[in-house]
Every structure is written in C-alpha cells, then in structure tokens.
Amino acid sequence: MENKNTILSVKDLCKYFPVYGKGFFTRITGYIKAVDNISFDLFEGETFGLVGESGCGKTTAARTILRALSPTAGRVIFKTGDTVVDLASMPENLLKSFRPKMQMIFQDPFSSLNPRMTVGNIVGEPLVIHKMAKGRQLTDRVKQLLARVGLSSEYINRYPHAFSGGQRQRIGIARALIMYPSLIIADEAVSALDVSVQAQILNLLMDIQDEFNLTYIFVSHNLGVIRCICDRVAVMYAGRIVEMAATEELFRNPLHPYTKALLSAIPYPDLDIKLNAVLTGETIDLAELPHGCNFESRCPYRTTDCLCCVPELKKVDDNHFVACLLKN
C-alpha cells in the first residue's frame, strides 16, 4: 500500500458560478459555490469515488478537473510519463496535448452520442481529430475496441438510435478507450441502466482497468455501485468533501454525521437490515451557504461551534479524513 504513484493531485479546487440579479443592469449578486476547496490525491490504477446527493457538485468537480470548466481557484497537478503539469492554470492551446490522456464517460448514453454519426465514426473520431490514424488502420482499431467492449464489429456502420442503453454505454466506453487514456472520469455512467445491464457494465469497467492501465474517478449518487467498484471514496456535501476513506472503512466506520445519515438511508435488499433513516430536511442552497459547517442545518450533533467555524478536512487515521468539528 505504500509507494503508490500519484497521478493526479487536486489542491484547493474551487468552481463558483455567478448569480445575476434581476433588473436592467444585470450585476453579480452572489455565487453558487458548486465546488468549494476540494483536495485529494489520486493514485495510479485505483478507482476513486465521488458520492453525494444530486446538486452537491460532483459533476462540476469532475468537469473542472478535466478543464471542461475553468476553475475559479486551485490546482490540478497531473502526471503523465515524466511530465508534471498544472491543468488548472494551463493555457487552452497547451491543454490540447493532454486531453487525450483524460477521457470522460457520461450518464446518459442517449444524449452523449451524436445521432447522425455511425458507431464507427463515433468511436474513431478522437483518433481522427488528433490525426493519429486513418483508413485501414483506423477501422481496425475501432473494430478491435468494439470487440473488447462486447459489441460485434458488424455494428460499425449503424447509428446509435438502433442500440439499447447498455450497448450505447459500451460505445461510449470504446470511444473513451481509443486514445489510450490514463485517467477516465465516469460521471453517473451506470445510473440510467437496468440492474442486469448495470452489472455487466461495472464488470466491463473492472476488467478493462487492469488491461488498459486505467485510473478512474467514479462519480455516482448510488452508494451500492460506489461500494462495488471503488477503492477509496470521497463524500461530498454542498460543494465540499466532508469525508474521505478507503471504501470498506467508510462503509463500516463512517465518522461524519452526513456520511452516517447517507448510509442509513440505503434500502438494503436484505430483510434483516431494516431501513432506519436518520436524516430529515433537504440539502441547502449553494448560493446561500451558512457561516459555519455546511451541514449544520441538518446535523443532529450540532454545537454552537458549528455555527461559526468551517470544519476542514483532517486526517483522523491512515487513509481516513473527516471535516467535522466534533471530536469523535
């Protein structure tokens, strides 16, 4: 477990979206702090999970890391080969050569594929854009990847509408793999699928991980899926990471009041584990964050300190970090 290679270091990353006032002179009246000071290291070959309720900033975090959104503040140190760069501050023209190394797989295979392109063109497009293959070589590579993700190479000339959700997700995976990326961010990649297909895709993602030497950031609101595929997990609440730990540790020994509440809300398909949800109320408005801890309004353990101090993510154990003012 020791000498693990860090492939990505996210440091104090922030992404704020401006809120504009009403009226003739539109001016900025505040900010939605969708991602607020998140930091974590990503080790080569691992699967790192980002979990939390919808709207807590998971997608924004993922897209900001990949520079699909420009960060408000912070650093994203990315290592590839012997090169170490800060993606967060890199000018757009230089970013181009790093983009192929980082790929994204999306939730909705229905809308993420261009309906007017054939499967072959969709999967091969990144190679064409980066002028890395053409003709016979391109077709061969596309067929090879289609086969790897479990699709017949006969499909190469068909259009995406002819495929089921699971098949479309396989097409998306083939497209992500074609540039030999080192990092793949999967954003709710199996959330729209039926359980049987979801299980097939999860298996596929686990199989290709070793084969292609991939590191994953796996974004999901589904705790079962996270538990199944991730080595480590960060729990997000209202734009911040509130707890981060090895998966089993997190599920066995959640320390943050929000993590505890989240885990207590899982309905297990097991008659001996009765649902005993403890969390009341709804998540807060990211444009109007409280002064202290973001979870303060729903937290059963709140003290007066929680109203004025912002808890930082602190190490409590090897591989276990918590952002809560409570001692235990």
Binding site: V195, G224, P269
Partner: peptide
C-alpha cells in the same frame, strides 16, 4: 436469482458481479 445476483454493493468489493447475460 440473476436479478438479485446483479445487485452491487452487498459485501462485494472489487469482485465481479454475476449479472444476467445479454439483454431484454
């Protein structure tokens, strides 16, 4: 039986799931 085998997250970490093969 197969649907229940497809469920992720019950004490299986990093292990493959046992889904129904193919699709509807």
């Amino acid at each position: 039986i197969a649907l229940l085998g497809s469920l992720p997250g019950i004490g299986r970490i990093g292990k493959r799931l046992a889904p129904v093969r193919g699709s509807v």
